[in-house]
Design a binder for these strands. Structure first.
Lengths: 239, 239
DNA sequence: TGTACATCAGTGAACGCGCGTTCACTGATGTAC
DNA sequence: TGTACATCAGTGAACGCGCGTTCACTGATGTAC
C-alpha cells in the first residue's frame, strides 16, 4: 500500500476521472448545453444517483470539464512555446497560435465548451479564471521577452491613433498582471492579436468559413503571420 | 378587402410572424439549443400542436429565426454603409464594423444563434446561405470600390509572404463571387479582416473579455482601425 | 490480531417536470355553381 | 345572392421519451481500541 492512500481513496480518484472522461465523451454527442448526468452514468455502467457521490450537481461536473479543457489547451500552448528557442519570438508566436488551432480542431467540443455560446443558467465559478489565463499569459510572456531583447518593434508601434483614456486604464491593469515593462502600444496590439487569434479559430470551428476559405490551414497560417507583423514581432535573424 | 388577400391569409401571415417573434423572445431565455415549440405556443396562448400548422417541425422554426437574424444583421450593415459617402471607404469600413458589433450587442441571442456553437443535430439548409452572405458582400464591395478609386493601397499589399497555391485557388473563387477585379493580396487581407471582425465580436459577446478589456468600446474601435490599416484602406482626405 | 462501530459507495424506486410530435375532432372560412 | 362542399385552423388528449435530484436502503471499507 502506498503511504496513506487507502483503497477507497484510490477507487474514488479513478471513478472521478472516469466520470470526467465519460462526460467529455458526451460533449461530442450532445453539445455543452445538453450534458446529462444520466447519460454519463449510463456510459460508465453506474446508476445515475451514484454520480452525485462525486459531483454534487450537474454544474459542478460542467465546471470540472471547463477547468480540464482550459488546462489542456494551456498545456498544449506552453508545450509548443517551450519547443522553440526563446529568442525566436516570432517562431514562438507562430508555434503558440498553431497550437491553439490544432488543439481546437482536435477537441472541437471541448473548445466549444470554453469559447462557445455561454451555457444558459450556468455561471463559471472563480477558480476557472486561473486555468483560463494560461494562454494569454504565455502569449504576453513571449512578447515581453521580445521587447526586452529587441525582437519587437517598439518605436514603430507608436504610429496609429492615440489610445483613449479608458482603454489606457484597462491596458495598465493587463500590463501590470501579465506583461510588466511592455509599452502600452505594444501590449495593446498584443491584446488585439490575442482576441483575433481566438476569434479566428472560433469562426472557423463553428463552420463560418465552410464554402469559402475552408479548409483554412493556409488561410490561418497567413493570418497568424500578419498578426505577428501587427504586434511588431520581427522575423528571427537565423531562420 | 385588398386584392386577393383573404382574411385567412392575413391571419396566417400575422400568426406566423407572432410565432417567429415569440420564438425570438425565447432565445433570450433559453439559448438556441433549447428553443421549445411548447414554450413558444404557451407564450402566444396557443396549444402546442397548433404551431405545427405554421412550422412543420422545430428545425423549420429554427431555420426561420436564423434567416431572420442574418437578414436583420445584413440590413443593419447595409444601412450603415449607405450612410457614408461612397468614396470615403475607410469611413464605410468603420461604419460597417461598428454596425456589426452594435447589432450583436443589441441582439446577443440572435447573434449567438448564427455565430455561436452549432446547435446539435441541426443542419442549416441551403437557403440560409444568401442572407448569410450579405455582410461579407457589403464589406468586399467597399474594398472593391476603394481599389477602383485608389483609396486602397494595392502595391504595398504585395509585401508579406507569397500566397500558397491552395489558398490562391480559394481566393480566386471568393474574388470572382464578391470582388471582381480586386488583386489577390488585397482580397486576402480583406478576407482576414472579415474573419477577425466577427471573431472579435464573438469573443467579446461570449464573455471572454470580461475582467480585462470589457467594456470593449475603445478596444473594438482601435481594432477596427487597425484592421482597416491591415487591408490597406487609406484615411479619407476630407475627413 | 480481533472485534465494534462509523463512514462511505452504490442501488433502485420515486417525484415532478418538460419535451416533440401525432391524431381524431370541431368549427370557421373560402370557393364553385 | 344563396347554398353545398372543400379546405383550413385550432383543440385536447395521448404516446413515449429523457431529465435532475432525493431518499431510504444494503453492503463494503476504514478506524479505534
Amino acid at each position: 500500500m502506498n503511504a496513506g492512500v487507502t483503497a477507497r481513496e484510490l477507487a474514488r480518484a479513478n471513478l472521478t476521472q472516469a466520470i470526467r472522461d465519460a462526460a467529455r465523451g458526451q460533449l461530442a454527442v450532445q453539445g455543452a448545453g445538453h450534458l446529462s448526468v444520466r447519460a454519463v452514468a449510463r456510459e460508465i455502467g453506474m446508476v445515475s444517483s451514484a454520480v452525485y457521490r462525486y459531483f454534487p450537481t450537474r454544474d459542478d461536473l460542467l465546471t470540472a470539464l471547463i477547468v480540464d479543457a482550459y488546462n489542456a489547451l494551456g498545456a498544449a500552448v506552453e508545450r509548443a512555446d517551450a519547443g522553440v528557442e526563446p529568442d525566436d519570438v516570432r517562431g514562438r508566436w507562430r508555434a503558440m497560435c498553431h497550437a491553439v488551432r490544432a488543439w481546437a480542431v482536435g477537441h472541437p467540443h471541448e473548445y466549444g465548451l470554453i469559447f462557445g455560446s455561454p451555457v444558459p443558467d450556468y455561471r463559471a465559478p472563480q477558480h476557472t479564471v486561473g486555468p483560463a489565463a494560461r494562454v494569454p499569459i504565455a502569449l504576453f510572456a513571449a512578447v515581453q521577452h521580445g521587447v526586452s531583447i529587441g525582437a519587437v518593434l517598439v518605436a514603430d508601434s507608436s504610429r496609429g491613433p492615440a489610445v483613449p483614456a479608458a482603454l489606457s486604464a484597462q491596458m495598465a491593469v493587463v500590463i501590470a498582471e501579465v506583461a510588466p515593462g511592455v509599452p502600452e502600444t505594444v501590449a495593446l496590439r498584443a491584446a488585439i492579436a490575442w482576441t483575433q487569434l481566438f476569434g479566428m479559430v472560433t469562426f472557423e470551428l463553428f463552420g463560418q468559413l465552410v464554402g469559402t476559405m475552408d479548409p483554412a490551414d493556409d488561410f490561418f497560417a497567413t493570418s497568424v503571420d500578419l498578426l505577428a507583423e501587427l504586434v511588431g514581432i520581427r522575423p528571427h535573424p537565423t531562420r
